[in-house]
Structures are given as C-alpha cells and as structure tokens.
Computed example of a mutant assay.
Amino acid sequence: MSTDPTPPGFELPLRLLLAFRTIIDELHERIAREGHPDLRPMHGFVFQAIGPHGTTAVELGRRLGVSKQAAGKTIEGLEQLGYVARGSDPADARRKVVRLTDRGVDCLARSARIFDELRAEWSATLGEEQLRRLEDGLRQLAPGDPFRLDTPRWFGTP
C-alpha cells in the first residue's frame, strides 16, 4: 500500500489507459514476430465483432458503433491483408457475409495465447494474489460484458 498522498482523480483513468496500451502494444509486438505484422489494435475489436459465424457490413458497423461505410472500408483493408473474406449467405444469396479466414482464426488463437503469457508475466511482477485483487476490483467497478465491442467509436472509426 502506498503512503503517498491520494493522487488526483484524473490519474486513475490515465493509468488504466496506460495499462491497456502497455498490454496491447506488447501483444502487437509479439504477434508481429509470429507472422501478423500488419495488424492494428482496432483489428481485434473487428475480429471479435465478426465472430465465428460471420456478419454483414451493416451488422459489423452496428456492433462497433461505426457507420456501414466505415465498416466496409475496414473489411476491405482486412480482406486485402487476408484476414477476412466476403461471400454469400447460404440462406440468402443476396446477403453478403464477412467471415474470418484461416489467417484471421490463426491470429485470434495466437492472440489468446499471448494474452495468457502476458497475464502470467503481470502475475510474476505483481504476485498472483495482487493481480487477482486488481481483476476482481475492476470487475466490481466496471461490471457488465467485457466484450462490449462499440469501444472503437471512442477512438475514431476503425
């Protein structure tokens, strides 16, 4: 426990953002070394919003809190990189569905493993008990779905 005076209130969200940036930046450094150098932090939100069964550009935009046009531009860029593919919906040939390619699925699997490694490193630094208290405290302060995907709108369109 710190004996320093209480820090100003604005420091808490900045420290939370800095912790987020630290772990995401390290993830992207490692995933780049594993064959995914073109990924950007926003792409993780997009992959999660596409999901295992795919989605349309309209639905992707809704899930991310961005316009259909912004979602379409993001899909186009990820398609060029080989992470997603567009195809017809078997139930409705007029409807175009975006799905993750094998490359996109590989990226998600590698990301999950790297996040586990990073958590283990943070546990080694802070101690498992302190890290669990931090995680429990964050769940208490920020309840709800941790996979809320409209976060990109806070930072601009993907």
Rank of each mutant, 00 (worst) to 15 (best):
L108K: 02
E79V: 05
I114F: 09
E59W: 11
E79F: 00
I31F: 03
I50R: 03
A120T: 09
G87L: 03
P8W: 00
I50P: 04
P52C: 05
I114L: 15
T6M: 14
Y83K: 03
E135S: 04
E76H: 09
R62C: 03
I31W: 05
R94G: 02
R15K: 12
L60N: 01
V46C: 03
M42Q: 07
D150G: 09
L138N: 07
P13Y: 10
W154P: 01
G82S: 09
A85C: 05
L131H: 06
P7M: 14
P8E: 07
L78D: 06
T55P: 04
E59R: 15
L138R: 04
L100A: 06
T22P: 04
A112E: 07
F147R: 13
G127L: 13
L39N: 02
L108R: 06
G65A: 12
S123I: 06
P7G: 13
P13A: 08
Q69S: 15
Q69N: 11
A91C: 00
G72A: 08
G77I: 03
E128N: 10
T3L: 13
D38I: 00
P158N: 00
A32F: 13
R148H: 15
G82N: 10
A124T: 12
K96S: 02
D4M: 13
A120L: 11
I23Q: 07
A142P: 02
A71M: 09
R33G: 10
P152R: 08
D145E: 09
L126D: 03
A124M: 11
T56H: 07
A71S: 12
L126S: 12
F10Y: 13
D25Y: 08
A85P: 00
R110E: 06
A124I: 07
E26R: 13
A120M: 00
P146H: 12
G82V: 11
S2A: 15
L39P: 05
T3V: 12
I23N: 00
E29P: 01
R86N: 05
L12S: 12
R30D: 00
L17H: 10
A142K: 05
L131C: 07
R33E: 15
D106W: 06
F155D: 04
Q80K: 12
G61Q: 02
G54A: 09
F47N: 01
R133T: 08
L39W: 04
T6A: 15
I50C: 02
A85K: 10
G61M: 04
G35W: 08
L141Y: 11
D38F: 12
F45T: 05
P52V: 13
R103G: 03
L141N: 06
E59H: 12
D89A: 09
L14M: 14
G104H: 06
H28P: 00
P5S: 14
L149K: 01
R94D: 07
R63S: 01
